[in-house]
Write a protein that binds this DNA or RNA. Structure first.
Length: 574
DNA sequence: GCCGTTTTCGGCCCGACTGTTTTCAGTCG
């Protein structure tokens, strides 16, 4: 019984209680479920140690239920709830705009217990005669079912950002705006996004709503009011916009950036100070006087907190750190001095060494690492030792052609073979400036085997960076089975960096593991794994991931300048 | 069901929008 499973059961209890019209308990179960999901420790271990009630939101009653779940894999209370309410109703509640009340009416009046039955009923126009329903409600539910069926569709951060930025740019160009910002999980830099949130600060919001719903990419307008509207884009992505007075912009930005958990705690701090925080500002509870609201900084300051970067706002300890002045000074994009992982047309990249280097220089970098694939990876035209030697020559020549003003590091993304040895032996690797070791094959090994494999590579003394350490592809491939603590210990010992692979569907290491690595004393190196120069723009995704992992510039190898980096690498030469 | 320098009992975020309402309930974020 793992944490996710326990949380899942609790979410189901919450839904079932909602259907029964029980008040407050559902929120309690959801809160506990969220906290259980985000635990670092294994819930069965906590249960065994009798520490369940130390989990926020878990009291005596829930602790008992968790104990039962951990011990027996079952929960009598849940079974009882399930027997009282048809299981399909929970599914109905997952349709947008269908909540517990609607689901219950559908069940009581029409006997609908499943998505399938609802579809039949709605197509037969059986809903419009129900009290409180009409044609529009029917249409809305049809749309909702479509949305639900199209789901699973959380979009990658790297895909959502440009879409959101284009909308912001469109709104800016269509009229003068006082303030505008992306908000929500996109602003916090979560690796996947459900929808896009945009916030506008302006004293004439209605005209902005008009522009918004007339954006060229709109497929349908879901709702439109004077301060709040929603659209669905042709791509299927939903975009919500909110407008507030300029004097409330900071409070609203704080509010709509979230996370929900972060906001619950900040509001609680306000309450203790006799203040009320909502999207319009921070107010004195008694007099209603506005204390702060125009900027996030002043809102946080009035709460006795330092400003927290959006990427930190996940209620993972940032609020205590802000109160105690112990927030990390997280790395900024402008501190990155080079791209640590780029492919060229020598293997499966599409641009030449020189084009890559010139593009990197144009991005303001001092250096780029050319790291093409090694011989085993035939499908990528991986380099043989002989071709690698030729490539090193080509790198040196390209560097000369750039007039010595830009550093091109000759590297390799060398395969870590199944037994943990490297695809090139050290006589080949010693001529390189830098070596990334990566796993590209036999990815489904058991945990002990995979751990031994990468730890061997890390300890080999021949790699500087472990490339995409967990191999996960967001929404497509689970991370390798890997004992992260053991890997990080080895990396610290061997002074090998973990990569933050910034390619949009990798972000590997992820935020949580970045933070773990930092705490273990392991440095990170951000590389885009670009296969064309356009991909080099993914660097910002890597930086966002680093920031979400609380990394500071000193934790990131490629904040070093070219000379410092060379010195660092020579210092550990094999 | 949880939680507490507001409380061991009585709160628990609340404002915007929609549809079907003639004054509001439901959903969402």
């Amino acid at each position: 019984m793992d944490n996710a499973k326990v949380a899942e059961f609790f979410y189901e209890i919450a839904d079932l209680l909602d259907l029964q019209g029980v008040a407050f308990k559902p929120q309690s179960y959801r809160r506990a479920a969220r906290n259980i999901e985000s635990l670092d420790d294994d819930i069965s271990r906590i249960a065994a140690e009798g520490r369940l009630e130390e989990i926020p939101g878990v009291g005596e009653a829930m602790a008992k239920k968790i104990d039962e779940l951990v011990k027996t894999g079952k929960l009598g209370y849940l079974d009882k709830l399930r027997s009282e309410v048809p299981a399909g109703l929970v599914e109905l509640m997952h349709i947008p705009d269908v909540g517990p009340k609607t689901a219950m009416i559908l069940y009581r009046e029409l006997g609908i217990e499943s998505l399938g039955q609802l579809k039949v009923a709605v197509e037969g126009h059986k809903l419009r005669d129900l009290k409180g329903f009409g044609e529009k409600s029917e249409e809305r539910i049809i749309q909702g079912i479509r949305t639900l069926e199209a789901k699973g569709a959380r979009i990658l951060l790297g895909d959502a950002l440009p879409v959101a930025e284009a909308i912001v740019e469109y709104l800016r160009s269509s009229q003068t705006l006082d303030r505008i910002s992306i908000a929500g999980s996109l602003r916090r830099g979560k690796e996947t996004i459900g929808d896009i949130d945009i916030l506008v600060g302006d004293d004439e919001p209605a005209r902005i709503m008009d522009s918004f719903v007339h954006y060229g990419e709109v497929r349908e307008v879901l709702m439109k009011g004077p301060t709040k509207s929603s659209i669905r884009l042709k791509s299927g992505l939903q975009v919500d916009i909110r407008a507030v007075d300029t004097k409330s912009f900071g409070a609203a930005l704080q509010y709509f950036t979230g996370s929900k958990e972060h906001n619950v705690v900040t509001r609680g701090i306000g309450v203790k100070l006799g203040l009320k925080l909502n999207e319009y500002g921070l107010f004195e509870r008694d007099s209603g006087r506005l204390v702060a609201g125009a900027t996030e900084e002043e809102v946080y300051k009035a709460l006795g907190l330092r400003y927290m970067e959006p990427e930190l706002r996940e209620n993972r300890g940032e609020i205590d750190a802000a109160r105690e002045g112990k927030l990390p000074e997280v790395v900024r994009p402008d501190q990155v001095r080079g791209d640590m992982h780029v492919h060229t047309d020598w293997s499966d990249g599409s641009d030449s060494i020189e084009v890559v280097a010139r593009h990197a220089a144009g991005l303001g970098y001092e250096y780029v690492v050319v790291s093409d694939h090694s011989q085993s990876l035939k499908i990528t035209n991986g380099l043989s030792p002989e071709r690698l030697r030729k490539q090193v020559d080509a790198v040196r020549k390209a560097e000369d052609r750039l007039g010595g003003k830009f550093r091109i590091l000759a590297g390799s993304e060398v395969d870590i073979l199944a037994d943990g040895t490297l695809d090139f032996d050290k006589s080949v690797l010693k001529d390189l400036d830098i070596v990334i070791g990566s796993v590209h094959s036999r990815m489904k090994m058991q945990k002990p085997d995979m751990t031994r494999r990468v730890v061997n590579a890390v300890k080999s003394g021949h790699i500087d960076i472990l490339g995409h350490p967990t191999g996960r592809l967001i929404g497509q491939r689970a991370p390798f089975e890997l004992e992260m603590d053991e890997l990080l210990d080895a990396a610290k010992e061997a002074k090998v960096c973990m990569e933050i692979n910034a390619f949009k569907d990798r972000l590997d290491l992820n935020d949580v593991n970045c933070r773990l690595a930092k705490e273990e004393g392991v440095r990170m190196a951000i590389g885009t794994d670009a296969h064309s120069i356009e991909h080099m723009g993914y660097m910002r995704l890597g930086v966002i991931t680093a920031r979400r992992g609380w990394l500071e510039s000193g934790d990131v190898l490629n904040t070093l300048g070219a000379k410092e980096l060379d010195r660092h690498l020579r210092g550990r030469r094999r």
